[in-house]
């Protein structure tokens, strides 16, 4: 079932918090070069699944394979260094560092860091880190503010800064956690364009979103989560017609009403 093209595969992933089943027996794969959306109503377990994949929460059972290796139980930094880049739902830039230094942390993380190299023999690596950080900044269009303190950027720019920082890790899989949160319609549309462009440039993206529109317009495949279970997995058209999905979303709206 896992061929050479598979970058991420999760198998029977389950997480319990006390008596609550936050994520229950989720199985899915992502292939290299895909742009996949993960959606679900509030409380569907998206965040928990996200934390299970990135290593912040250990699963109760099930496995996560990334880039051909079993990464279940590894620490977040180990998984990140293997090539899993991520952004955060509620902006987490390093506020007192410059834009360039923010991005460089991603690059430093993926190259590995050591005090000896900083002392004696940093030249080659520093040039590589600088170059990769600069490249990431140019990709998101923040090169002209590279020297600004991150906290002084506008909200929208800080979103792109987070993406640049994740890109600087040279991710084999880029996971974006609700990137459209807090953006208006125009900005969301720009973001959708940007994500499609990244995908066209060859970046594999997993887009975890609350905003249906963004996912349906950008992704080639959509995975739907409800009450901790995967209830659908297919093209946007298939998913939109799926009665289980309609029920999950409408059901929630009934509850809310």
């Amino acid at each position: 079932m896992t061929d050479a093209n598979t970058i991420l595969s999760i198998d029977g992933l389950t997480r319990r918090f006390g008596g609550l089943l936050a994520v229950s027996d989720v199985t899915a794969t992502i292939k290299q070069g895909e742009l996949v959306g993960l959606i679900g109503p509030n409380g569907a377990g998206k965040t928990t699944l996200f934390n299970l994949i990135t290593g912040f929460t250990p699963p109760s059972s099930g496995t996560v394979r990334f880039a051909g290796r079993d990464v279940t139980g590894l620490k977040p930094w180990q998984i990140a260094r293997m090539g899993m880049g991520r952004t955060f739902q509620n902006l987490r830039v390093f506020p007192n560092m410059t834009v360039f230094d923010n991005v460089s942390v991603g690059a430093v993380g993926s190259f590995g860091q050591s005090p000896w190299r900083a002392l004696f023999n940093g030249g080659a690596q520093s040039r590589a880190v600088s170059a990769r950080s600069w490249e990431a900044l140019e990709r998101v269009g923040l090169a002209d503010v590279a020297g600004e303190i991150a906290a002084n950027l506008s909200y929208g720019k800080r979103k792109y800064l987070e993406i640049a920082r994740a890109l600087a890790t040279a991710p084999r899989l880029l996971i974006l956690d609700e990137p459209a949160a807090g953006l208006n319609d125009t900005e969301t549309a720009e973001l959708a364009d940007f994500i499609r462009r990244l995908h066209a440039e060859g970046v594999t993206v997993l887009l975890v979103e609350h905003d249906m529109g963004l996912v349906m317009n950008s992704c080639s495949r959509v995975i739907v989560l409800a009450s901790g279970r995967k209830i659908a997995d297919g093209t946007p058209e298939q998913v939109q017609r799926d009665p289980a999905v309609l029920e999950a979303y409408l059901g929630v709206e009934d509850d809310a009403a």
Binding site: W77, R92, F94, V105, G109
Partner: peptide, 15 residues
Amino acid sequence: RALREDDQCADSMGI
């Protein structure tokens, strides 16, 4: 400096 600013976030950058 990234540790000081946000160590969880640094963690997911591979630090």
